[in-house]
Design a protein around this nucleic acid. Structure first.
Length: 598
RNA sequence: GGUUCCGUAGCUCAGUUGGAUAGAGCAACAGCCUUCUAAGCUGUGGGUCGCGCGUUCGAAUCGCGCCGGAAUCACCA
């Protein structure tokens, strides 16, 4: 809670005691931001207090208003409109707060505290059979941003990735490469490793479809054809060999996965995300299998006649879930059980956050239940941070129809757009080509990242590849632009030999735009805390947009360096300094870099 | 069919521990650059907050029922 709200809550409780002889539970005190059209900073809603005052809303509001004005030095005046008590906070209070913000190393951020929790955040979680796409971009940006936000709230965060490097999907790519690859490698083809492997995955799918069609044409049912197609049978055989440790299969698997990892590393690096620890399912499926077998021994799981092992959750209103196939191989769930177990052994986190799409809501619900059935006390620390799908105008991305938006291509396009636009505007004269390219990259990626993070994670979002992402309005470049304008003021101040003030005067009058900015600055720590509690980066994104929009108005309406009153000029410089700090630090939480000029 | 999530301006989205006349951006139209960067600022038009009922002094926000969309309910991941 913000400082002023604590002061006011306490003061209102005291006032009600004095005025009406009633003790007021603090939860009845509803404080909110005053709406723009009224005079005031904070509004007390008096309706819930009427049962204590036993007076009309207007009289109650006036009583409390007078009390606060007399007893609370931060309140300079008030007005009452239809049961809403609008309170005007002294400018001095906000200016004092501004100076504290200026002194803070990173205003609004918390350092690690003695009672900080260790939180493990899993994100990205790619399969090793194809390159990353638009959906992964949302996932990566969310996971990275949430991790940063939790850290800014004083938690110890371990960013982790779970690479799904085993299973039938990678066997499909391997099989196709073996058959049709003619030894092609990333090195001699010039293709990025993940893209190359992805091509063979697609090749498998195409050939597999042909086989199915042939079998169906020969009179087989589609369902049977899907199971009996020779390619599928071969892929399954390959998976069995893999689990049995067949050397040739393992060698091929290692080679192709290595290509994929090198490709992923390039994409991650460009996106600006990284991990503290990477887990591989190929290393956690055995612990998972063991946990399942132990569960079987303790009779919390059941074995069927065909040898398959199941969790029976029908008493919990859910169904049964297979954990080991009849041929003894493990499934996705088994691997996740193992991964969770290994992580507990490695780090014993207080909380385990899984950033995974909402298509897996059921999976994570079941995972937590099964871990609980298996007797792990930490089962309840799992949190599925579920986010919505990224959809195209024509619906879901489908690799079959070639509508998948590739992550690498998209980043290229964004940077190209930034380059074209910058050239048109022609503001970067005098910079070296390298400097320019760096700025294009920062702007292009900034547009992409902000676009994805400003949307509430739970919601599905639309991405239209034909209408490229905007650079005006509520966008990353708009925010970056505002930031560079502020830096430009500071550079100009230096040229004019205007000293950088180390604090703002606190006894000056401010205009409306300045007051709005002071209020927003005051609000930032609460927004950051809220974003951490709700795992929601969009709160930060939307707050920063509001802040820079307000700053642009101020910048447009008033001059900073040409202001004649030196005290006001000092204040405006400090105000700009604090705004630029919030914008930079806040955008960095989102993984968006800030250019120095643009 | 069961379960979960979503439905706010032409489009993309804010706003939901219940509060005042529901806000931005884009698109459209009309203005503002000898000034600290016009990727900016100002203005105009644009809404049965999917529909209905209920709870309440007060509902976009909470409950119930519909309608629309999505996901999921695999020996896929």
């Amino acid at each position: 809670m913000q400082v002023i709200e604590q002061i006011l809550t306490r003061s209102v409780v005291e006032g009600i005691k004095l005025l009406y002889g009633q003790s007021c539970p603090p939860e009845l005190i509803q404080l909110q931001k005053t709406r723009r059209e009224f005079d005031g900073d904070i509004t007390l809603v008096v309706f819930p207090l009427l049962k204590l005052s036993r007076k009309s809303p207007d009289i109650t509001a006036a009583d409390i208003g007078s009390y606060l004005q007399d007893h609370c030095q931060e309140i300079v005046r008030f007005n009452v409109i239809k049961g809403f008590l609008n309170l005007v906070i002294s400018t001095g209070y906000f200016l004092g707060h501004l100076n504290r913000a200026l002194d803070a190393e990173r205003y609004g951020f918390c350092g690690v505290l003695p009672d900080s929790r260790t939180i493990m955040v899993e994100y990205s979680s790619p399969n090793t059979n194809k390159p990353l796409h638009l959906g992964h971009i949302r996932n990566n940006l969310l996971g990275y941003a949430v991790s940063n936000i939790l850290e800014a709230n004083g938690q110890r965060v371990i960013k982790t990735n779970l690479v799904n490097d085993r299973g039938i999907h990678i066997c499909k790519s391997m099989l196709a490469w073996q058959r049709w690859g003619n030894g092609e490698t990333p090195a001699d083809s010039g293709k990025k490793g993940d893209h190359l492997v992805g091509e063979y995955y697609v090749k498998f799918d195409r050939e597999y479809k042909k086989q199915i069609a042939d079998l169906v044409a020969a009179g087989m049912s589609r369902e049977e054809a899907e199971k009996k197609a020779p390619l599928m049978i071969e892929a399954q055989e390959m998976l069995r060999k893999w689990e049995a440790g067949d050397e040739a299969v393992l060698l091929l698997w290692k080679k192709m996965n290595m290509w994929v990892y090198e490709g992923f590393d390039g994409t991650y690096k460009r996106l600006g995300v990284h991990f503290d620890k990477i887990y591989y399912e190929s290393e956690t499926w055995i612990p998972g299998k063991n946990a399942v077998l132990e569960g079987l021994g303790k009779n919390v799981l059941v074995k069927r006649d065909d040898g398959s092992v199941w969790a029976d959750m029908r008493d919990k209103g859910l169904d049964e879930k297979v954990l080991l196939r009849s041929d003894g191989t493990s499934v996705y769930m088994t691997q996740d059980i193992g991964t969770a177990k290994v992580r507990q052994q490695d780090y014993a986190p207080d909380k385990m956050v899984y950033v995974v799409g909402n298509e897996q809501n059921y999976h994570f619900k079941v995972l937590a239940i099964i871990l609980d059935m298996l007797g792990f006390p930490w089962a309840k620390t799992l949190h599925h941070l579920s986010y919505g799908m990224v959809e195209l105008p024509e619906g879901k991305m489908k690799s079959r129809e070639g509508t998948v938006v590739d992550a690498d291509d998209l980043m290229d396009e964004m940077i190209d757009t930034a380059r074209e636009m910058s050239k048109e505007l022609g503001k970067l004269e005098g910079l070296s080509d390298d400097e320019k390219e760096d700025i294009f990259r920062i702007i292009g990626l900034g547009a992409l990242k902000y676009y994805m993070l400003k949307v509430d994670p739970v919601k599905n979002m639309l991405f239209n590849p034909r209408e490229s992402i905007d650079f005006d309005g509520n966008t990353g470049p708009f925010i970056q632009y505002t930031y560079t304008r502020i830096l430009s003021v500071f550079r100009k101040a230096e040229e004019l030999q205007i000293d950088r003030p180390d604090r703002s005067p606190e006894n000056i009058a401010v205009n409306d735009k300045e007051k709005n900015l002071l209020r927003l600055i005051h609000e930032f720590p609460a927004v950051l805390a809220d974003a951490g509690e709700t795992f929601n980066p969009s709160l930060i994104a939307n707050f920063i947009f509001e802040l820079v929009k307000e700053y642009n108005q101020f910048y447009h309406d008033y001059s900073i360096l040409k202001e004649e009153d030196p005290e006001i000029r000092k204040f405006r410089l400090v105000l700009s300094r604090v705004v630029s700090g919030i914008v930079k630090n806040g955008m960095e939480l989102l993984g968006v870099e800030m250019p120095e000029r643009m």
